[in-house]
Design a protein around this nucleic acid. Structure first.
Length: 270
DNA sequence: CCCTGAACCTGACCGC
DNA sequence: TGCGGTCAGGTTCAGG
């Protein structure tokens, strides 16, 4: 479900309700998600959630002696609810906060992840190898050009590699390549410097627009406030195989690349 | 280095 | 209605 814009939407939705709030209670109903769920109550109860930030598709809550690391996986969502709301079958984690609210993690497929991190959170193995933030200053044409030299991997797989750039998943990789006019199967190392610039600009643009629209809701994504995202209507290729290209009218083509559905315009994207 | 397929899960949807 | 197959926004690993 969630790529960077959906995680950012989640962060913005919950931040005003959790920041500075003390945790009164922690309920863990699933023994494991992608990894076993650690002991959270002793580390969190009585502590305030002092900070909340995003790194790629990960959320980091600063609390007490460490950080809570959370990933939404394919089907996860994090919401603010009244503390009395009864849990459904896929509501795996609750943090009851002072003031009568509850932060709830729901994840039918359980590909999400929760870990407790000691020390410098960015030094943790799950985060240390991540590439630059696509909306940050370090993600430049120059960076992408240099990172792609000598790489024969398809540019779409390259973009979705978190070590190259953080937080780009299947939807936005498809969308950015279409906006930049680049064929997804093109070997990354064949991109010219100028095309790297166009790709960086297209990716930043599509991510920023999606964040502004509250992310993309395809089936069930809801932000921290329970509202869906409205970017689905702005998608130009994802989920539109066979439909006419918004740019030239040619039918959009679908192939599988690295096991993921890949949609592009055979005429506009070279 | 790079590719594919599979694994981890559930739910939605489609055709029969 | 039901059943079986396919697909899904992520990540990681084995094997070729």
């Amino acid at each position: 479900m969630p790529e960077l814009p959906e995680v950012e939407t989640t962060l913005r939705g919950i931040r005003p309700h959790v920041l500075g709030r003390r945790v009164e209670e922690v309920a863990v109903r699933a023994p494991r998600l992608r990894l076993p769920v650690p002991e959270l109550a002793p580390r969190l109860v009585g502590r305030a959630l002092e900070g909340l930030r995003r790194r790629g598709k990960y959320l980091l809550f600063a609390a007490g002696e460490g950080h809570l690391l959370l990933h939404l996986g394919m089907s996860g969502s994090l919401r603010i609810l009244p503390a009395a709301a009864p849990p459904g079958p896929h509501d795996h984690l609750d943090w009851t906060l002072e003031g009568g609210l509850c932060l709830r993690f729901t994840d039918p497929r359980r590909f999400g992840l929760v870990q407790w991190l000691q020390g410098d959170p960015l030094a943790h193995p799950l985060l240390a190898g991540l590439g630059p933030e696509p909306l940050g200053e370090a993600f430049t044409a120059d960076y992408l050009y240099r990172a792609s030299r000598g790489r024969r991997v398809a540019v779409k797989a390259f973009l979705m590699d978190g070590r190259v750039v953080a937080g780009v998943g299947n939807i936005y990789a498809n969308e950015a390549l279409h906006r930049a006019g680049i064929r997804p199967l093109l070997p990354a190392g064949r991109l010219s410097r100028a095309r790297c610039g166009r790709l960086v600009a297209a990716l930043r643009e599509v991510l920023a627009e999606a964040v502004a629209q509250g992310g993309t809701t395809l089936r069930d994504f809801v932000g921290g406030d329970g509202r869906p995202g409205y970017f689905a209507q702005a998608l130009r290729v994802y989920g539109r195989a066979g439909a006419p290209c918004a740019g030239c009218g040619a039918p959009l083509r679908e192939v599988r690349l690295a096991g993921r559905s890949t949609v592009y315009c055979p005429r506009c994207q070279r």
